[in-house]
């Protein structure tokens, strides 16, 4: 259950199709062939590794080692002590997995809700479209942090509520992207062909529309994950997510910012990890999007042929379809 696994996990559960796994694999391999994708995955894996393997190596995150903000390398360990004298290193090692799990769950929820809303809006059109998309607009109008804060301060601070709140604020973004993509797919002839056999819309969406949306789904998953992580960490920072004394990167940044002058690591270590993770997932989602561009489907048959010829299509860098799709400009 590492963060990179959550990305593909979300998708196949919605569209159980054999060829889908193959395509997802091809997209991921394509992304990994680019420098951007390699760095993105590496950064992500480093942080994910620290977050999930860290607890195995961490000492007690709540034990006191000397006074507040002990200097690094002293009694409180190589990264020094925090505001109450606890080891920054132990707390960093123990404080990541909750954020990641909560963010992953929130992302999964956002993707499922958002893509259903977006695809149904696009395929049904008319009143359903208007109703869904105007609701989405309203949700988008509320700043996401404010929305979750409100939810938490009214109902109380619970992990499940953080998941629901963050999921709800991310879903509208997913819905918009997926609606645009699904609108395009719904107009394709192969979808019309199926409709002309009298196949019910639910089946058409499940078998033909959603599998064609694999790329936006994967890109959105990675992108929403990085937004969710920041949001969840921000909530912890503001004191409405994970509650002290539990170790948590967001909480740590808040607790230790008063001692920035004495021991910078209390803030810097969790901040660097969060930033690295956000950058990593972002780069990876970008790499997936680009990998798809260079392996796109329809288009000029000439380019298609040039690209599918073995040595070109599976080459390292995309001489890709964009080379073929673009007319002289």
């Amino acid at each position: 259950m590492s963060a990179d696994a959550t990305t593909p996990d979300v998708v196949p559960t919605k569209a159980p199709r054999a060829s889908l796994g193959g395509r997802a694999g091809r997209l991921l391999r394509g992304a990994l062939r680019t420098r951007r994708g390699q760095i993105g995955l590496l950064l992500t894996l480093i942080v994910v590794g620290i977050a999930f393997l860290g607890p195995l190596f961490a000492g007690s995150p709540t034990a006191l080692h000397g006074g507040p903000f002990e200097a690094p390398g002293g009694v409180a360990g190589p990264l020094g002590g925090d505001s109450l004298g606890r080891s920054v290193l132990d707390r960093v090692l123990d404080g990541g997995w909750r954020i990641l799990l909560i963010s992953a769950a929130a992302t999964a929820m956002a993707i499922v809700l958002g893509s259903i809303a977006g695809v149904v809006a696009a395929y049904r059109g008319g009143f359903a479209d208007t109703l869904i998309m105007r609701t989405v607009d309203v949700l988008l109008g509320i700043p996401s942090l404010v929305f979750v804060l409100m939810l938490l301060s009214v109902i109380g601070s619970h992990a499940w509520l953080v998941i629901v709140g963050v999921g709800l604020t991310q879903a509208p973004q997913v819905a918009r992207v997926l609606r645009a993509a699904a609108q395009d797919v719904s107009e394709r002839d192969y979808v019309k062909a199926v409709a002309a056999w009298g196949v019910p819309p639910r089946t058409v969406i499940r078998r033909h529309v959603i599998p064609s949306l694999l790329t936006p789904l994967m890109v959105e998953s990675a992108l929403r994950l990085s937004f969710s992580i920041i949001l969840v960490a921000s909530l912890s920072f503001l004191g409405l997510g994970t509650q002290p004394p539990t170790a948590d990167w967001g909480v740590m940044i808040n607790e230790n910012r008063v001692g920035l002058a004495q021991n910078v690591w209390g803030v810097l270590a969790p901040a660097i990890l969060l930033a690295t993770l956000a950058v990593g997932t972002n780069m990876f989602s970008d790499a997936i999007a680009r990998a798809n561009l260079s392996a796109g489907s329809a288009g000029d048959p000439t380019l298609q042929m040039a690209l599918t010829s073995s040595n070109v299509a599976e080459g390292d860098e995309p001489v890709g379809l964009d080379a073929i799709d673009e007319g002289p400009g």
């Binding site: 060829s19 394709r188 002839d189 192969y190 062909a193 694999l214 489907s297 329809a298 288009g299």
Partner: peptide, 22 residues
């Protein structure tokens, strides 16, 4: 179902009429 089966439609654009994910 029988009526639908009896008459089949072939589309103009061969690049759009087959599902690219299958």
């Amino acid at each position: 179902s029988d009526q639908l089966r009896e008459m089949q439609y072939i589309f103009q654009n061969p690049f759009g009429s087959l599902n690219p994910t299958m």
